[in-house]
Structures are given as C-alpha cells and as structure tokens.
C-alpha cells in the first residue's frame, strides 16, 4: 500500500468512528460541521479532477453544486421524494448543463477557460436567482426531504452523516481509480503537453470535456446532499465566491490529491468556525492569509499535509 492509501484509510476510519467516539449526535453542531466539511470535500475533489489532473482552472465550479441542488429541490417540490430518483434527475440536469457549457468553454484553454467558466458560472447563478417560483434571490426552504424507499433514514442524524460519508468515500475511490486508469493518464498528458497528446493520437478536447462533465456530476451530487442537509436551497450555493473557496480548498490541500482536498475542506471549515467565533469580521484575516500563503508558502499549506514527493504542479 502506498502512502496516500494509508492516509485515506486513516481519514475514513476516523470519520467512520467519530460518531461512536464522541457522543456526537448529542452535539448536532459538531455533526453539522463535519457534514459541511465532507460536502465541501466532495465538491473540492471534483474540482481537483479538473485543476490538479487536467490543468483546467475553472472558476465557475460552484455553479454545478447550485444546479444539482436546484434540480433536487425542484424535484422535491414536484413531489418526487425517493433519493435515488432525485439522484438520477440531478445527474441528468447537471450533466446536460455541463455538456453544453463545457463544449463552448473548452474551445479555449488556460486563462481564457478561467474567464469563460467564471462567466458561465455567473450566468447559471443569475438563472437560479430568476426562478421566482422557487424563491428567487432568497432561496427556498424545503418542507419535504428525500426518503430512501419511503424511509426517512437519510434525512438527518446518523443516517445522513453516513450517507454523506459513504458518498465521499465513493467519490474518493472513483476519482482515485479514474486518475490511474487510461482516462486519467490521457488527462494528465493533456495537462502536461496538449499538442503532444494530440500527436499521440488522442482527441484531447473529448477527454477534457468528459472530465469536465464528470466533475460537474460529482459537484451536482454534493448539491443534492447539501439540500438534504440544509433543508434549504438558495442561489448563494452557486456564487463565484463559492467557486473561489473551492479553488482555495484544492490548492490548500495540494493539487491532484484527494486526501488533500478532504484535509483542505476540514481546514477551511474549522478556520472559518474558529476565526469566526472570536472575530465576526474573520475575513479581514482570512483574505490576507491567502495572499501571504501564495507569496511565501510556495507549495501552499499542502506541504504540511501531503506525503513528500507526491505533489505535482498543475502547469
């Protein structure tokens, strides 16, 4: 077993045991915090597939979390309650939106891709705010939550905790396999040297588009679960600042590292809670912290987390 697997085994064992170790479900606050971090980690792992493995910096990724969340919420409002059916709806809608925007956005690359994903993300955000029937700007509180075969086990407490944890584990495993499979290899080749990959005989844009859609699907699932956890949906999920936060998590955790994305997500959620608890204006510290991190901690904080020698630059 290599080091990332050992670290992952440790992380997941800890997450699995936490509800038993602590009298956690008495402390709904802590459970909520961990679920929040896990949801962030799912979205971050999907973004890392684009940035870390594919070298495609998207600044509109949170939009897919929003699309997934709204697809689920609208499904719920229309009387569809089974979580598996909602999952299918979420995947279909997110996939379609990603296919269309991705096809257009991937006509470019590099910093142009960044600007265009930002613009499409914003377009999706505004579209969500204009859904007057579903709360518009203010969002929508959901009175009915999803069920699993009619059971409410996936609605809160331990059930929801383990559903989110199980999803995180599955996403981790899927992206792990994918990154080592033929597909991931082509994606890395296209990141390293797209011209060479093309001259090796790969239709580079197709692989990049496939990665873009897969990443969006995973983000959409995180949106679905976010609805289930928060019992509320709003366009705030899809703002470009959320996309920026996701990039922070990915870079903080170390590129092309799924463990890093999880640790980064927990770090951000904890920092926000801790800083926020003694200073309401915690962003006055968080902002400069990011600047300093870029300026002085060259490898990012990830160097503290990632096993030595596994970290690779995206460019």
């Amino acid at each position: 077993m290599d080091r990332p697997l050992i670290l992952a085994a440790f992380i997941f064992a800890l997450l699995l045991a936490l509800p038993l170790l602590l009298p956690l479900f008495g402390a709904a606050y802590l459970t909520g915090l961990i679920i929040k971090a896990m949801l962030l980690a799912i979205a971050a792992i999907s973004l890392d597939l684009l940035i870390g493995h594919g070298g495609m910096v998207s600044l509109g990724h949170a939009a897919f979390v929003g699309v997934g969340a709204y697809a689920a919420a609208i499904g719920l409002e229309s009387g569809i309650e089974d979580i598996l059916v909602l999952l299918l709806i979420t995947l279909a809608v997110t996939g379609l939106v990603a296919l269309v925007t991705g096809t257009l956005a991937l006509r470019t690359s590099g910093v142009y891709l960044l600007m265009i994903t930002l613009a499409f993300g914003q377009m999706i955000y505004f579209t969500l705010t204009s859904l007057a029937a579903y709360g518009g700007d203010d969002g929508l509180t959901l009175w009915n939550l999803a069920t699993l075969f009619g059971s409410d086990v996936v609605q809160n407490g331990a059930g929801l905790y383990y559903v989110v944890l199980g999803t995180l584990l599955m996403v981790w495993w899927f992206v792990h396999r994918l990154s080592r499979a033929r597909f991931g290899r082509v994606l890395r080749a296209a990141r390293d040297n797209p011209q060479r990959a093309e001259v090796m005989g790969f239709a580079v844009k197709r692989y990049q588009l496939a990665a873009y859609v897969i990443a969006a699907l995973i983000a959409g699932v995180s949106g679905l679960l976010t609805v289930q956890y928060a019992e509320f949906v709003s366009p705030a999920l899809a703002t470009w600042q959320r996309s920026g936060d996701l990039i922070v998590v990915v870079v903080l955790g170390g590129l092309a590292s799924r463990n890093g994305a999880i640790l980064g997500a927990f770090f951000i959620v904890i920092v926000e809670e801790v800083l926020g608890s003694f200073l309401h204006e915690w962003r006055l510290i968080y902002g400069p912290l990011l600047v300093l991190m870029v300026l002085f901690a060259k490898g990012g904080l990830s160097d503290l987390f990632a096993p030595r020698g596994t970290r690779r630059s995206a460019h």
């Binding site: 499979a181 033929r182 597909f183 290899r185 390293d192 040297n193 090796m200 790969f202 692989y207 496939a210």
Partner: peptide, 29 residues
C-alpha cells in the same frame, strides 16, 4: 514529450492511444 511522465509511461501512453479506447475509468493503466 510529457515532462511529468516517466520514460516508460511516455511510451506506454503512446502505445495506449493505438490500442483500444482510452475512455476507461477503472483499471490501472
């Protein structure tokens, strides 16, 4: 060439391009 790939992997991926689909997501290449 692909700078972050090993010598072997540079050639293995070139071979991969010509041998079957690369839209494969599970088996370690």
């Amino acid at each position: 060439v692909l700078p972050s790939f090993s010598v072997l992997e540079n050639m293995a991926i070139a071979a991969q391009a010509k041998r079957g689909s690369s839209m494969r997501f599970f088996r370690a290449a």
